[in-house]
Amino acid sequence: MNCRHIKNRLLPTNTSLCSLVLFLSFLLMALLAPVIAPYDPYIRFEPYRSPSLEHLLGTNDLGNDIFSELIYSSRVSLIVGFGAALMATIIGTVIGLFAGYFKGTPDEILMGITDIFLMIPQIPLIIILAAFLMPSFYLIALIMGSLWWTSTARVVRSKALQIRETSFVEAARSLGFSDMHIIFSDILPNIVHVITPKFLMAIASAMIAESSISFLGLGDPTAKSWGMMINFAFIRGGFINDYWWWYLPPGICITLFVLSVVLISYAFEESEEAALRIE
């Protein structure tokens, strides 16, 4: 039997559609970088060239084509954003689910750990670690992911506490389903609408954090990211000489991508609310 038609989905609005298109085009840009970019970003041309047909956004101090650099940079930026957010969301969700479902002692231990992590000043710690350890984007993503799960854990826990008291969870326990089955098949699907916006917001903040760290010069100087591009534009005279084609595009890319993520997350929350109202 075909059950598709019953599910009630809202038509997307113009804003959410635009942000989705934007989001997907950034993803495509990262995936298809070698196809789209006119040059290898490490090839050297004449440095400090102004935009021309040959080099759409000119060249930088080393003579790399800025347009190609911009496209390749999306890869590192997105990997850091997604990686950190995915890690934070998974850790936070699992900890929150277990704390909320089992209550009592497991809850107190897990929430105690969460409180400890909440006390860590995160950006300073990331900066210190980035400065002292080998500067690498994967490391930065890893550090952010292992620090940023706390708020997700708290939200998921309180939601799980609420849902575990509903009759359908009690009924599942009474029917003899295992705890794992109840947690992942009954409770988790009812929390996804809380987790998804959290995940999207985490992508946005991780990308901004990565850019900030790179801009401060604490990133990996050999990898190309949007934040790193701005950093180089800053220290190699891009700002002083007003080579806007050098520092503006990566800034715009960061802004647009974060904007698309935030808008999608709003649209998601809205449609979730509307769906609840229909029920």
């Binding site: 059950c3 019953i6 009759s167 359908f168 009690e170 009924a171 029917l175 009954d186 699907p189």
Partner: peptide, 18 residues
Amino acid sequence: QMVFQDPEGSLNPRKSIE
């Protein structure tokens, strides 16, 4: 087995009856 009071709440809202 136990059968619960609130009829709307005794089934997971995100699972079809099937």
